[in-house]
Write a protein that binds this DNA or RNA. Structure first.
Lengths: 228, 228
DNA sequence: GTTGACACAATTGTTAACAATCGTGTCAAC
DNA sequence: GTTGACACGATTGTTAACAATTGTGTCAAC
């Protein structure tokens, strides 16, 4: 009787692919063929198709007509826009989280920091990357705003792609000690400091990117022919 | 040879429905039957289906299983979240617009204010509502950030729904003189004033809502049975 | 040896028929 | 007169076959 007891829903497929992208197990440009995904998730083609459309609408996947779906490859311009958006949103989210955090939230934050630290120390890279992104969505969750949470999930996921393209070879997403400092500021009831630390944290991440780097591949040709 | 010369694309259908919702010609709760939309846009069912899925992913449309698509009816909680998100985003957008506005942008703003004023004076209500929402997306456009622009389009559209539900009978979206003041601040090269005016403007809109109002229809019953 | 055209295989996109679900209207029973 | 069950119609959801496009590999020509 239950409507979706046997097959998994589109939301779950989207969530799983989001997770894989965040963990950088699906690098930018990876082809996501329909048949492979059908097999992987054990669902019909239509469901995969809808999932890919949803992923494309959030700009995590790029649909090329008659050529299939690919993990998005953000441009330098898009990278700039994503970080600009994060700089607009996350200080506000930090402030809201500061205002609304309950003791249970602080416990969740503490546990999260522990997990992040452990994953880093034990060299579980994928998990560490996922957790470092999840820290930012956890704050949005504590802020108690589903709209902001949704936005942050998208931005964090796209940030993983951006780091994959423009980040150095071993550049991970965040340094977990900066997360620790933010939580410390929240615990010290110093909202403004938390906001400032978040802003600095984002600038710090962005400063580790080389936005002129990989785009040269295609831009060289384009600028060659578009030249004066 | 052109791929979509005869039929209109999903994006255009989504855009058209967005516009209709912003103009409050599609009130919250309106049923969007597939057959009707197929006829209206002259496209096949699949395309309509995809469009509705995209609209649902942006929470402008609600898909009820086996019952069809309906224009979303935001709850009071969602209304709060939307305005909170706008308060987080729009001051930042105003600042970016301030930093990047070119003379051409100012001309566009001036023309927009004129159109808004005219539509208000001549009583073209739908157009006036649309333009008053469009002012906010125009600022995001001037800010030069596609990510923020997309977010603002969604939020503005949902705001129209929120006003339709929680706004007074004749409550329109914005008072255009407040838009004028914001542009004046930009022209005076007073970025901080523009930011503050935007914040005040949003608070002003939100203050005209009665978030306890219409939800009583269903909440009464729920709270009745959930009572202690 | 390189380049061009051609044909084939694989994948995506579309269409149409089918299945399932829900709302409504009718009708009998109390 | 109201309530319950039942059956019908309408609409949505799914499946499978079909059409179209793209990329690739082969082969001949220069």
């Amino acid at each position: 009787m239950s409507p979706n007891a046997d097959e998994i829903a589109e939301e779950e497929i989207v969530e799983r692919i989001f997770e894989a992208v965040v963990e950088q197990r699906l690098p930018p440009g990876t082809k996501l063929s329909e048949s492979a995904l059908c097999e992987a998730f054990g669902v019909g083609r239509m469901r995969i198709r809808r999932s890919l459309l949803l992923l494309a609408s959030r700009e995590v996947v790029e649909l090329r007509a008659n050529r299939g779906a690919y993990v998005a490859t953000p441009t330098a311009e898009q990278a700039r826009e994503v970080f600009e958006a994060r700089l607009a949103l996350e200080p506000a989210i930090a402030r809201l989280a500061f205002e609304r955090a309950t003791p249970a939230d602080f416990a969740a934050l503490a546990q999260h920091l522990r997990q992040e630290h452990d994953a880093n120390q034990q060299g579980r890279r994928h998990e560490a990357i996922r957790l470092s992104g999840q820290f930012h969505t956890l704050l949005a969750q504590i802020a108690g705003n589903a709209v902001l949470l949704r936005m942050m999930k998208d931005l964090v996921t796209r940030t993983s792609l951006i780091i994959g393209i423009f980040g150095g070879p071993g550049a991970s997403n965040c340094r977990d000690d900066e997360h620790q400092q933010i939580v410390d500021a929240l615990l010290a009831r110093d909202g403004q400091k938390a906001v400032d630390l978040m802003t600095a944290h984002l600038h710090h991440i962005a400063s580790h990117l080389d936005l002129e780097a990989k785009s040269s591949n295609s831009v060289d040709l384009v600028s060659l022919f578009a030249g004066p």
